[in-house]
């Protein structure tokens, strides 16, 4: 059962073969080959679980390295990233799924039945980004943020500085002097040299 180190690296042709298969079956698109051992593809939300299942069961991408989200706030969407790994071919394949970041659409099908560990990722994504994964175990239990009632903090609109200024107080006695202003005030304070 141990993986053999004599196995050769996956070839670009093989990556393209996997991609072609996914493209035909599920309309997967946007192949980005980053390195010989790493590529990314994009798929629609409705096909995502089928794509992941297919990759795991037919193409040997059995390891879910992680699941996370990237906030593309300007475009109003989250990019979910399922980073899969094939130990036999030693290949990373990131599957990117775009979902809306607002409203009911901000949800995704759960994959905890495929990878029980995914339940933790999904719990965290719910807490940190506000993404719903209906059916995922203990989804609404606090993860790292016990008693948090603010915005999900990993969303880009959550302003950490504003939050900390609102929640904590600055240590008294600190003063800042702006270098340029200070030099102006001391070297050329005149109104005649103020443009």
């Amino acid at each position: 059962m141990s993986d053999q180190h004599t196995q050769t690296q996956i070839s670009s042709a093989e990556v393209h073969e996997v991609f072609a298969d996914l493209h035909t079956r599920y309309g997967v698109r946007g192949l980005e080959e980053k390195r010989a051992d790493q590529a990314f593809v994009r798929t629609d939300r409705d096909e995502a679980v089928a794509v992941l299942t297919h990759l795991r069961d037919r193409h040997g991408y059995t390891h879910l390295a992680f699941l996370t989200a990237v906030d593309q706030i300007e475009e109003g969407r989250f990019e979910l990233l399922y980073m899969l790994h094939n130990y036999e071919l030693r290949h990373d394949l990131g599957v990117i799924v775009e979902i809306p970041r607002e409203g009911d659409g901000c949800s995704m099908d759960t994959i905890h039945r495929m990878w029980p560990a995914a339940a933790t990722y999904q719990r965290e994504l719910r807490e940190m980004f506000g993404i719903d994964f209906p059916g995922s175990p203990r989804l609404h239990e606090d993860f790292a943020l016990e008693g948090w009632h603010d915005l999900p903090p990993m969303r880009k609109e959550f302003d950490t500085r504003e939050y900390s200024e609102r929640t904590y107080y600055a240590r008294p006695g600190r003063t800042k002097t702006d270098t340029r202003q200070h030099m102006k005030d001391t070297i050329y304070p005149s109104e005649a040299e103020t443009w």
Binding site: R171, R174, T175, K176, T177, T179, H182, M183, T186, I187
Partner: peptide
């Protein structure tokens, strides 16, 4: 780090006269 004025040091050309204070 805050840049602060320090006693006995004048602002001149090429020197703001401020010095870093570390918290």
């Amino acid at each position: 780090i805050d840049l602060v004025p320090v006693e006995g040091r004048k602002t001149k050309h090429g020197d703001s006269g401020l010095r870093p204070k570390v918290d």
